[in-house]
Design a protein around this nucleic acid. Structure first.
Lengths: 190, 190
DNA sequence: GAATACGTTTACCGATCGGTAAACATGTAG
DNA sequence: CTACATGTTTACCGATCGGTAAACGTATTC
């Protein structure tokens, strides 16, 4: 029960931090929301920072898993999968609880690149970049790295603007921009 | 002296919040950093939130002014000015103190769209969108609104990734993506 | 049943949070 | 010089911050 209780704590902390922010959610509030006593929390994690790191590791796994599964479900050909990224994003933006990206928010609250929380956020984006590049390679892009980076730019921008302005036009224009860049990145001659 | 002292407080608060984050910088620390006593601060602003709003209003003005002047200095033709946005961004990313966008960070810490701080951040991006659209119109884009939105997506993504991964490749790929979308958005036939 | 071990709750720590009241300068008008 | 207004400092408020020690309950082992 101990291992699952720890997982339960991390899962519930993840939701609380996602909804409320890292600095804004204190350990007392977290104990109340998760139903785990403060002392119990400090038995599993030595500090708030380590708990946050654990929630971010879980979120990284959850999100990338969700995205890959969704992309595979929406399209088969690598080229179409690159575009399907933005269909998946559109679905995410429409979810009721959508509140931007956990890692963008983490890097906003822990701004120093040397901070472990910032570093894990950067790593998450790096892994997404790797995923995009793999798809771009399979699709036969002239420069998979450049295309992946460009698509990641659009994805991050879309998240930020969907959070600020609502999902309305954002997902559509992100998809349109991505389609144009994919077309261009896969053309035989440019 | 009163008016300039207030401006001075806002200016110094802006720097402190930009470097440290909104929740992380308390009013005591702010008093110490700005050299203005806490009571004096509360004479000018009824609450921390109002002070934050004032810093964001100043930042909005500063940033949009800087961007427009820089774009005008870098290019003359509207089409080139659209691209020059990303040259200006590249310069910004290379500045020593660059730590993402104040408004992205504000919306990360005050996530509810109904919150005044979130709202002012959304408004800032809306004003940038208007500026981009005006340039796109002057450049003769087929759909100025769509092109402006796409360029804004890239800009926001670039800021996020420059903050997370450093300025290295980000500005270059942002510019390349923008160039492609501008080409496409200004073509007579598509 | 006594002793040991382990996880939970309760109560508490000093520091800091946002915010305020009262004491204290300082300048100006009569 | 007095009287009043203005602005600043000092000291303080209850609440909450991240984190901890000790009391307590419960199960296992001998």
């Amino acid at each position: 029960m101990s291992a699952s209780k720890r997982d339960d704590l991390v899962q519930k902390s993840l939701q609380a931090f996602y909804r409320g922010g890292f600095h804004a959610i204190g350990m007392d509030k977290l104990a109340k929301e998760t139903g785990v006593s403060k002392t119990a929390m400090y038995k599993h994690f030595r500090s708030k920072e380590e708990l946050i790191l654990a929630t971010l590791r879980l979120r990284d796994e959850q999100f990338r898993n969700w995205l890959m599964r969704r992309v595979e479900a929406l399209a088969e050909a690598p080229r179409d999968q690159l575009l399907a990224i933005f269909d998946a994003l559109a679905e995410w933006f429409e979810e009721p609880g959508f509140k931007s990206c956990m890692f963008i928010k983490a890097s906003s609250e822990y701004q120093d690149r040397s901070h472990p929380i910032h570093a894990i956020a950067a790593e998450h984006k790096r892994l997404l970049l790797d995923y995009f590049r793999m798809l771009a390679e399979k699709a036969g892009a002239q420069s998979p790295k450049a295309l992946a980076q460009q698509l990641l730019l659009i994805k991050e921008g879309a998240i930020v603007l969907a959070h600020l302005h609502g999902p309305k036009d954002v997902a559509r224009e992100a998809r349109a921009a991505a389609a144009a860049l994919i077309d261009r990145g896969l053309a035989d001659i440019d």
